[in-house]
Amino acid sequence: MKQWLENLALIAATFWIGGLWVVGIVAYELFKLMPEAQLAGNIAGQLFRMMAFVGMATSIYLLIQRVYQFGTNALKQSFFWLVVLMFVLILISHLGINPLLEKFKLEAMPKDVMESVFADRFATWHGVSSIAYLLECFLGVFVILKIR
């Protein structure tokens, strides 16, 4: 049973971390390929939202599986704390920064947020969100390297 759970953890982590990188690349390309930035942003936002849910579910599974497999010794492993850090980054982005960005978009209506008085604040918080996502991607590489 433990071997099956460990294999599932490897598959789930690979799916999650690979998805993070793919969505990041796709979002970047969307803005290059689509003439309307607002539409590209909406599509990218939906992709990031989807990955947040995948990340929350996967990180919770990985943490539970690790504690099940190693008991309290899991708390001494860098893998465990990398996943915790990634989970915290997801929560900060998904529950903190993203609602703020959505608020700026709604308050800017009917204009595009980048043409409104909220453009500077939106750009700043979008940058913070981008850095958090990039950090999550790089931490994910270490998670994959530490999983076994």
Rank of each mutant, 00 (worst) to 15 (best):
I64G: 04
R66A: 10
V67W: 05
V67Q: 06
V67T: 06
Y68D: 07
Q69H: 09
Q69L: 07
F70E: 11
G71L: 09
N73W: 04
N73G: 07
A74R: 10
A74T: 06
A74G: 11
L75D: 01
K76S: 15
K76H: 14
K76R: 15
Q77K: 06
Q77T: 12
S78H: 14
F80T: 01
W81M: 10
W81D: 06
W81H: 13
L82E: 05
L82N: 04
V83L: 04
V84R: 07
V84I: 15
L85R: 00
F87S: 11
F87W: 13
V88G: 04
V88L: 03
L89G: 04
L91P: 02
L91E: 08
L91W: 02
L91N: 05
I92M: 09
I92W: 07
I92K: 02
S93F: 03
S93V: 06
S93T: 08
S93R: 07
L95E: 11
L95V: 10
N98C: 10
N98A: 14
P99T: 02
P99F: 01
L100W: 00
L101Q: 01
E102R: 08
E102F: 05
K103E: 12
F104E: 03
F104H: 10
F104L: 13
K105Y: 06
L106C: 11
L106A: 15
E107K: 13
E107P: 12
A108I: 01
A108R: 03
M109S: 14
P110F: 14
K111D: 00
K111S: 03
K111A: 02
V113Y: 01
E115F: 04
S116L: 13
V117K: 05
F118V: 04
F118C: 04
A119W: 00
A119I: 00
A119M: 06
R121G: 12
R121M: 13
F122E: 01
T124I: 11
W125V: 00
H126T: 05
G127S: 11
S129N: 10
S129Y: 02
S130T: 13
I131K: 12
A132Q: 00
A132K: 02
L134Y: 09
L134P: 01
L135M: 08
E136K: 09
E136C: 06
C137N: 11
F138E: 00
L139Y: 08
L139Q: 08
L139R: 08
G140I: 04
V141L: 14
V141E: 06
V141Y: 08
F142Y: 11
F142N: 01
V143P: 02
I144V: 14
I144Q: 06
I144W: 03
